[in-house]
Simulated scan of single mutants.
Amino acid sequence: MSATVEGDRLDLFVAGIVYLDIIFTGLPELPAPGTEVWTHGMGSSPGGIANLAVAASRLGVRTGLSSPMSSDAYGEFCWQILSREENVDLSASRRFDDWHSPVTVSLAYERDRSMITHGHPAPATVDGLVGELPAARSAYVSLEREPVPWVRRAQRAGTLVFADAGWDATGSWSAEALSVLDHCHAFLPNAVEAMRYTHTGSPDAALRALAERVPVAVVTCGPAGALALDGRTGEEASVPGIPVEALDPTGAGDVFGAGFVTGTLAGWPLGDRLAFANLVAALSVQHFGGSLSAPGWGDIADWWRTTRTRATRGHAEAEVARRYAFLDEVIPTGQIRQVRRATATIARLSDAR
């Protein structure tokens, strides 16, 4: 089964489960037992692996997705957004009539979130769906307790494999889960995950431990920024966080990963890749809705124009402008399409033009 675009290989191939995300934000408080809380903010969007796929596609990365998806109304909503509006190639995905879409309800509150998920085991494994591996310059995978056979095949085919970590609900944080890194180009966990897996006490110590396992190690530190180390060349980079008003952090890690993949495929220096990933993740938390909070190039261009204007007003803005000066060379010229944002309804039509 091929997921190539118009006969050419993909820039990025991802595989995983697509959820329907329903997000409530602007909560004055979390509901206590027996109470009801009203809020003004709600959005619906494809979630799970769709967060990464949409974020990458919006940055011009030709992205293919392999996922089992239901033919129910939720699945149809997600399928149409991904394939028709976000230009994600779904030819390696499959629809199922006798299975309903998994659903996650996210409550965004005080710069963090709580989630409730409902679903049943998928009718097909992701590795089974992949079949013949699509030709792709890069691929992205999340660490699993079970082996992911297609990752080894991707590496052997010359694909750069990027990996991140999910939360280990068992609490074991076993080093065996890191065995997939033997076939990966880069690993991008958050600071808590990195320290738990490496049994270290700081993000920097975790970074250096991970750099012994994978060519490029990255540790994200939320609002504090991110660290990276290329163990092959010894190149290091560190970027501070970008102050923004955070509405919903859902999917920010996936948006960061998409930004880092974009810079890697474009051949940017490590520092620019890290800064760009940090920027797009920061822009994403200003909207709610996981995948549909991901910025497009128009959002990035708007931020850059504002930042350059403010750079003459203070030292902090000037430092930011110097760090992101490379954007002058990478932001596409010409008209940039508007991107869709999450809305309360399961909308049949997009608000993007």
Rank of each mutant, 00 (worst) to 15 (best):
M1H: 14
A3Y: 00
E6S: 12
E6T: 12
E6C: 08
D8C: 04
L12P: 03
V18W: 08
Y19W: 08
L20F: 05
D21R: 06
I23D: 01
L27E: 04
P28T: 10
P31V: 13
V37K: 13
V37S: 12
M42R: 14
M42E: 08
G47Q: 07
A53R: 01
A55G: 08
L59A: 12
T63D: 06
T63M: 03
L65Y: 01
A73P: 00
F77L: 02
W79S: 10
I81A: 04
E86R: 10
L90P: 07
S91Y: 03
A92N: 11
S93P: 02
R94G: 03
R95Y: 12
F96E: 03
D98N: 13
P102G: 13
T104G: 01
T104N: 04
S106L: 05
L107P: 09
L107N: 11
E110H: 11
P121E: 14
V126F: 10
V126C: 14
A136L: 09
R137L: 10
Y140N: 02
V141T: 14
R145S: 10
P147C: 03
P149G: 11
V151P: 06
R153M: 04
R156E: 15
L160M: 12
D164W: 06
T170I: 13
G171H: 06
A175C: 04
L181G: 05
D182W: 06
P189H: 02
N190M: 10
R196K: 15
Y197Q: 03
T198M: 11
T198F: 05
H199D: 13
G201V: 08
D204V: 11
L207N: 06
A211K: 04
P215C: 05
V216E: 02
A217V: 06
V218Y: 00
C221A: 14
C221F: 01
G222A: 09
G222K: 07
P223C: 13
A224I: 08
A226V: 12
A226H: 06
L227Q: 06
L229S: 00
D230F: 03
T233F: 07
T233R: 06
A237V: 09
A237K: 08
V239A: 07
P240Y: 13
G241I: 04
G241H: 05
P243K: 09
V244Q: 02
E245F: 09
G253T: 08
F256T: 05
G257Q: 01
G259R: 00
F260V: 05
V261A: 00
A266Q: 07
L270M: 13
D272C: 01
F276Q: 02
A282R: 11
Q286W: 02
G289Y: 00
S291G: 09
A294T: 02
P295T: 15
P295N: 13
W297M: 14
W297A: 14
G298H: 09
G298T: 07
D299M: 00
T307F: 01
R308K: 14
T309V: 12
R310G: 06
R310L: 14
A311V: 03
R313L: 15
A325N: 14
L327I: 12
D328I: 03
T333K: 15
T333P: 07
G334C: 10
G334Q: 11
G334S: 12
I336A: 15
I346G: 04
A352L: 06
R353A: 11
